[in-house]
């Protein structure tokens, strides 16, 4: 039931996405554009070449980021970790910028440097958190480490961009997190990685449920914790990077969706995973609708909208947590 309801909400968001924009297009014209495409009809062209492609990018990126966040939060038993708060987004971004500057790479070829950046950032975050070991809450230390690493990589990105401002004008939107009209090209290259990651997440989900009880407990119950922890971490990073390569560093989806899924579906089984997948897609689709509608005909970066909306939700989350801790 809840799984189905989530899908219906996503479908509604998709319809909204196709209808709204600089010009509103009626549902019937959308249907016609899909069933009987007429290249001379302006509305049809907008629906197929601008909105459906954008929609596909939003759905894909939101879904993989939602699932990546869930995996990270479960294996680290930490509700504050996510691709953005661990610095994975920032690491991938700055390695992409470096690859563009030094090697002139573009498109799908950016996946490899992005992956290297994501893995490197994760390793740095773990090392930073280890330096802080013994002081304060280790889970907070991990998030602190992630914040420091994120800042570090953001500065690297800014530095490289400053070396050649003109060369990076095309990437400026991507740097904030943006869905462009041509992103569907890199989407088709990234989709296999994303889908492989999602299948991996489903296969590991039961063992990840056990890891959420702590590594020692999971080992006692028969889980090869090193293998599963490492595997789930790698999957989360691949998922994140497959989205970052397409849309840039978009935060908060991976942070907030797991909490929503937990509230709706609890901790165990495939339903929370499914809700993160569908919910992440819905949230990013709606963010893209807002990005196109808020200042129409100007289009905002979807990363900006996510930052504003997600920041507000995150603040509310932290405040309720803090209040809960006081009681």
């Amino acid at each position: 039931m809840r799984a189905l309801a989530a899908v219906l909400v996503l479908l509604a968001a998709c319809l909204l996405h196709l209808r709204l924009g600089a010009a509103e297009i009626p549902a019937r014209a959308i249907l016609q554009a899909i069933t009987a495409f007429d290249p001379t009809n302006y509305a049809h062209v907008v629906v197929v070449f601008q909105r459906i492609t954008r929609l596909a990018v939003a759905v894909f990126s939101g879904a993989v980021l939602g699932v990546a966040g869930l995996l990270l939060q479960k294996i680290m038993q930490n509700g504050l970790v996510s691709p953005s708060t661990l610095g994975i987004n920032a690491g991938a971004t700055s390695f992409v910028v470096l690859a563009v500057y030094f090697f002139g790479l573009g498109g799908a070829a950016l996946f490899l440097p992005a992956l290297a950046g994501g893995l490197g950032a994760m390793a740095l975050t773990f090392m930073t958190a280890r330096l802080l070991a013994g002081q304060g809450d280790p889970r907070m230390n991990l998030v602190l480490g992630g914040a420091m690493v994120g800042t570090l990589f953001s500065s690297v990105t800014a530095f490289v961009v400053a070396l050649d401002p003109d060369g990076f004008t095309n990437l400026l939107g991507w740097l904030i997190g943006d869905i462009g009209n041509f992103d569907y090209k890199s989407l088709s290259a990234m989709a296999p990685f994303g889908i492989a990651g999602l299948i991996g997440a489903v296969l590991l989900s039961r063992m990840v449920d056990l890891l959420a009880m702590g590594q020692e407990q999971a080992a006692v119950l028969g889980v090869d914790t090193r293998l599963v922890h490492g595997g789930a971490l790698l999957i989360a990073i691949v998922l994140t990077v497959s989205a970052v390569t397409v849309v840039g560093p978009i935060g908060f989806v991976g942070l907030v969706m797991p909490h929503v899924a937990r509230l709706v579906a609890g901790e165990v089984g495939l339903l929370p995973l499914w809700l993160c997948l569908i919910g992440g897609a819905t949230v990013l689709t709606l963010a893209d609708v807002l990005a196109r509608v808020l200042m129409a005909p100007q289009v905002l970066n979807v990363g900006t909208v996510m930052g504003l909306a997600g920041g507000a939700v995150f603040l509310a989350l932290v405040l309720t947590r803090a209040r809960g801790a006081q009681i």
């Binding site: 038993q77 959420a212 009880m213 702590g214 020692e216 407990q217 006692v220 937990r262 609890g266 901790e267 165990v268």
Partner: peptide, 10 residues
Amino acid sequence: TQASAVPPNM
């Protein structure tokens, strides 16, 4: 074990 952090929603 002596203690484990069971997710409270379970």
